[in-house]
Design a protein around this nucleic acid. Structure first.
Length: 511
RNA sequence: GGCCCGUUCGUCUAUCGGUUAGGACAAGCGGUUUUCAUCCGCUAAAGAGGGGUUCGACUCCCCUACGGGCUACCA
């Protein structure tokens, strides 16, 4: 068995969306599981759709996601070049090979003539195909005399090269996900293989490149399923059937509401990113948001994408990349499309946040803290992270919701003030502040004991004074475990804050 | 229109002929003698319809319906 080699082959027509990232991921998981090679090939045979910066974006996005390549435009490799526009010169000889063997032909039809042909066929209730029947009434090297063809070529008249499909033959191939797929050539089109601008089309280029790059498995989106039989015919015509890669067509990622393929517009409409990284359209200046900028952990995005169309038999859902590589299997990929769920994406992020150490999160957000005027160090911040990370989905929320760990509250939750800030509470807090201010670095449990003892002495329910205490310290009605919070902030500051709150807050009238 | 692919809770899915059809997200309710954004518990929630095959079908086959993809000198 030859070494597994897979490729991810995007075309640089804009930012790669998460469906593309998932395709790359599945290729990567499969390759690494089999100790194979992962190749990045840029399919830029359409010059008109080229977008500046797209290739760079693709490389950066996949690198952010942790998908590494063994070969590609950015890392080189034995099959260079990996950009199809740089391979342009080699495609013509393959087109010629097909021309010589009678499996392809020149066609000189104009766009208008093609339109007219299709309209006529449609009107007659026929499929609008350039096929074994309709090609006989078009302008091509099958209908024109040899002389005429040579004259047109010599005159530099524009032409394309089309595949010559047999009139009625069954094409079949085994898809690793879908099983046998069978199509009749009578239902297929004599697709253009070589364009009038001298570039190959996708169909020719991908088959030629996959062959030359010794690709063993083609794992791509379901949108390619209808053209797979055409590619099989190409392998047959070239005599490469024995080394033809195995195919696996992945189910599509559908939009969360309604139906259809997830598209760029859905993100703007429903308020979630469809791109891994933020993208600014170079011509319109329009900005599309990205997972990275929204604060997602790349591990979480990878985990989420892996579970879109793939699932293990047990009920496990949280995986690291290494675990995915171990557990992945093409056989477990579902056949039906999966609706994307932005809510679950947040949950995945939360789960992966919990998996990280407090220190690593602290290191990642400390610069942002400093930019926001918070003076802290990684040691203290790590402890804050430890108390806060369970309560947030994103690490940037920690900063937003934990300001009181660094500064006295700037404001107090008015609802809690109105409801709980009573004379009894103030009386209790004043004594509590006194008792704790003499301690040095008490533990949370010590503080809790003091709190409970005092409440018992004063005969007040803990429920009546606990929230006022939290309010005085943080200004908020909710937050991390109270006594852990006090312990970390320190008794001096806590006592100070209680004094401040007593001074600032109006008593509840009903008390 | 034609061709191809698909169809289990609202969503992602498990089940590879015999199960009380399981889990997760979301939802609802309740709990942690204090909050909730976390945590815990509970509840509700599914085999598109019709025919076969079989002792037995969510699982295999056929038809219908519905959904999706493709149908460019785009990938």
């Amino acid at each position: 068995m030859s070494k597994v080699r897979v490729r991810f082959a995007p075309s640089p027509t804009g930012p790669l969306h998460i469906g593309g990232v998932r395709t790359a991921l599945f290729n990567y998981l499969f390759a690494k599981q089999n100790n194979g090679d992962m190749i990045l090939r840029i399919e830029d045979t359409d010059q008109a759709r080229f977008v500046e910066g797209a290739e760079q974006y693709i490389v950066e996005a996949l690198s952010w996601a942790g998908i590494k390549f063994d070969e590609g435009t950015h890392v080189g490799g034995p099959c260079e070049p990996y950009r199809q526009s740089d391979r342009k010169a080699m495609y013509r000889q393959y087109a010629d090979q097909l021309l010589n063997s009678g499996h392809a032909y020149y066609a000189f039809d104009t766009a208008e003539e093609l339109d007219e042909m299709r309209e006529k066929l449609k009107a007659g209730g026929m499929a609008p195909q350039y096929d074994a029947v309709s090609r006989m009434s078009m302008k091509n090297s099958l209908t024109l005399s040899e002389d005429e063809v040579q004259k047109r070529l010599a005159a530099g008249e524009p032409y394309v090269i089309r595949i010559k499909l047999p009139r009625k033959e069954e094409v079949r191939f085994h898809d690793l996900i879908r099983g046998w797929v069978i199509v009749q050539t009578s239902a297929m089109d004599d697709k253009v293989l070589f364009k009038s601008d001298g570039m190959p089309t996708y169909h020719l280029a991908n088959v030629v490149d996959d062959y030359n790059m010794k690709i063993t498995h083609v794992i791509r989106g379901e949108e390619w399923l209808p053209s797979a039989p055409l590619h099989v015919m190409l392998y047959q015509f070239f005599g490469w059937l024995d080394v033809m890669p195995k195919f696996a067509h992945l189910p599509l990622i559908l939009k969360p509401d309604g139906n259809g393929k997830l598209s760029k517009r859905d993100g703007d409409r429903l308020g979630f990113p469809v791109f891994p990284l933020e993208w600014k359209d170079p011509s319109s200046g329009e900005i599309s948001s990205g997972y990275r900028e929204r604060g997602y952990e790349p591990e979480a995005v990878v985990n989420m994408l892996a579970l879109l169309g793939w699932h293990t038999s047990d009920n496990r859902e949280i995986f690291s990349m290494e675990e995915l590589i171990q557990l992945f299997s093409l056989e477990k990929i579902s056949k039906n499309g999966a609706k994307f769920d932005p809510e679950k994406a947040k949950w995945f992020n939360h789960q992966h946040l919990l998996l990280k150490t407090n220190e690593s999160i602290a290191e990642e957000i400390i610069e942002e803290c400093k930019a926001n005027g918070i003076d802290t160090d990684v040691n203290y911040l790590s402890k804050v992270v430890g108390l806060m990370k369970e309560k947030v989905n994103f690490k940037h929320e920690i900063l937003a919701k934990a300001k009181f760990f660094f500064n006295v509250p700037a404001a107090y939750d008015e609802q809690v003030v109105a409801k709980k800030w009573t004379a009894a509470a103030v009386d209790f807090l004043a004594d509590f502040a006194q008792r704790i201010s003499v301690l040095t670095c008490p533990m949370a449990t010590d503080l809790e004991q003091i709190f409970k003892d005092l409440a018992a002495e004063k005969n007040v329910g803990t429920g009546a004074v606990m929230q006022p205490l939290r309010l005085a310290i943080s200004g908020e009605g909710g937050g991390p475990p109270l006594f852990e919070m006090l312990s970390l902030i320190g008794v001096q500051s806590c006592a100070e804050r209680i004094g401040l709150a007593i001074q600032k807050l109006p008593l509840n009238q009903n008390s």
